[in-house]
Design a binder for these strands. Structure first.
Lengths: 334, 334
DNA sequence: GTGAAAGCGCTAACAC
DNA sequence: GTGTTAGCGCTTTCAC
């Protein structure tokens, strides 16, 4: 049925070893044989079976990326950066979506354990630090975007605490003193860090932390609306809102607008991530940008280094974030 | 280094055949041996090497999905549907992003040719009908969302012509007679079909086609803004705009709003795809929804049928679309 | 520069 | 119910 290296060898009148050498660009093969083999490959439309090749070489040159969600354009940019770098050095990136579901994620990680891929990058995970540490003993894994406390695993992310600080500080610099927070109560450590940064910024600037200004729920964007509604119903309304994700921010803006408020004037909103929508939204959304492509490139580079080395780098790398001010934080409060 | 089936056999004091039988849930194995083997697997933390398994079985139970872009939440929903169905019957879905670049797409298709996966679904492709037909002779491929004219390949999509018709008809039913179109001039056949539907709807209702009401450029969302600007500068402005994608529609709405127009009142806008943003946007965006999850499930089902059958189904399946009216087409024109 | 042959980890046919 | 063994397609040592 399928044409194999044997067929090529037979047709070309050489040994399979020679065909393999041509395939792998080995030096020790005469020009004549090389041409003969290449012609035969062409003629038979031969494509080497990578299962055989990978089994023998004990490597696949493929990295698996597991995303918690597919609705997040952030991940698209990260993967794009990964791919650019990986392809350049002969690796491929494949991805899978776990929907933040443990058993789906576990099933996908099987591709690592059963040697279908050489390494895996988790853009957020359901695994515990203990599980991750165990895995990382026998396999090459990395975390990107979202670290796990206590996990002794290669991690690439922005400094979320500082980013949260900078976001809140930007609002403070715009004159705000009543700043609310829309956060999540998942085990996602990044949002907790952003929250800590927000608190530190307020404290540093002598602003009291008010529990009624802090909303905790899930990442589901409906919470942006619910939070905003709640905040605006307070006797002493906040003048600014920092949401730990752009989707939450967008929903909050939407709700405020529906309530007849002018976002950027009556109330300012700051998001996090700088997804595509931020620029398009009305008003455009101020946010904290993560260096997605750079993070993707970097984590792949480090992971492949690990794959090809006996000593495993398990550092936590922080890449630089950037606060971007747009219309949703429109005007300075006097 | 890695523990293999041999190790398990030796440790358990049985043959590799027995271990393999346990692994594959074969009937002919005593309970005692089964327990023994399973305990040993657990103890050694053994994970079967799928390269060996797949090589031997000549199948991987993995389907590759190639997306043209990662910024499109539509694809996320489709893949989600694919995954749900595939997992249920023991298949895995992996995905890759081609960025609509031929050589990247070709590189990714190598995973099909080199037997790393059993089949591939293309959510839009750079390949020609001729190339696709050639591939489909030796391999299992399917198109989803975006057909290719002349390709004799399993395809699952909405009826784009009728969907374009229905979108335009909905605008007509709202009282509009001056309806502009933002389309693209790529080789994407879906947008051309939507365009044809738009034209048919206008003609059917005795509305003249006006060239100055038709904009052609790329899918880049900036074109939504450029088109809207152009339309609104006409002496005889359109009262409604149909864009062949939601991103184009969003950008158009944004531009109109920036120009001081009230979208849904001064001008109505209809998009296509029903991406997440449609609900959140201000105003929320009327659009044509594709049955993403259903399309994903369906194409995987049909593709796997093909994989397991000698006769290849190369039908073009149409699934039902749905026009969704929201605020961006707010009020009836009297 | 080239070929023969071992073997990567697994499954399945066959024998018992 | 279990073991022996051939072989999936490939790379790579070792001879020559």
């Amino acid at each position: 049925m399928s044409v194999t290296i044997k067929d090529v060898a037979r047709e070309a009148g050489v040994s399979v070893a020679t065909v393999s050498r041509v395939l792998n660009g080995s030096a020790n093969v005469s020009e004549a044989s090389a041409k003969l083999v290449n012609d035969t490959i062409q003629r038979l439309n031969y494509s080497p079976n990578f299962l055989g090749r990978n089994l023998r070489k004990r490597e696949t040159n493929v990295i698996l990326v597991i995303m918690p969600s597919s609705e997040h354009s952030l991940y698209g940019s990260i993967i794009s950066g990964m791919q650019d770098y990986a392809n350049k050095i002969g690796y491929d990136i494949i991805s899978a979506v776990s929907n933040s579901t443990s058993f789906v994620e576990a099933r996908q990680m099987d591709m690592l354990f059963n040697k279908t891929v050489d390494g895996a990058v988790l853009l957020g995970t359901q695994f515990s630090a203990k599980e991750l540490n165990e895995m990382s003993r026998g396999y090459n894994i990395a975390l990107c975007c979202e670290g796990v406390e206590g996990a002794d695993v290669l991690t690439v992310a922005v400094n979320d605490e500082q980013a949260g600080y900078d976001a809140a500080k930007a609002l403070i610099d715009l004159g705000h003193k009543k700043i609310a927070l829309i956060s999540v109560n998942s085990d996602a450590v990044s949002s907790r860090k952003r929250e800590n940064g927000y608190i530190r910024a307020l404290k540093d600037n002598g602003i009291e932390i008010r529990q009624e200004y802090i909303w905790h729920n899930t990442y589901d964007y409906i919470n942006g609306a619910l939070a905003m509604e709640q905040f605006m119903s307070l006797p002493d309304r906040p003048t600014a809102v920092f949401a730990v994700s752009d989707l939450l921010a967008a929903a909050a803006i939407r709700k405020a607008t529906d309530m007849g408020l002018c976002v950027g004037k009556d109330v300012s909103v700051m998001g996090f991530d700088n997804i595509t929508m931020c620029e398009m939204f009305i008003p455009s959304i101020s946010t904290v940008a993560q260096p997605c492509r750079k993070m993707g490139e970097f984590v792949i580079k480090k992971l492949i280094d690990n794959i090809n080395s006996d000593i495993k780098d398990a550092h936590y790398y922080n890449l630089d974030h950037e606060v971007i001010l747009r219309a949703s934080t429109g005007r300075r409060i006097s």
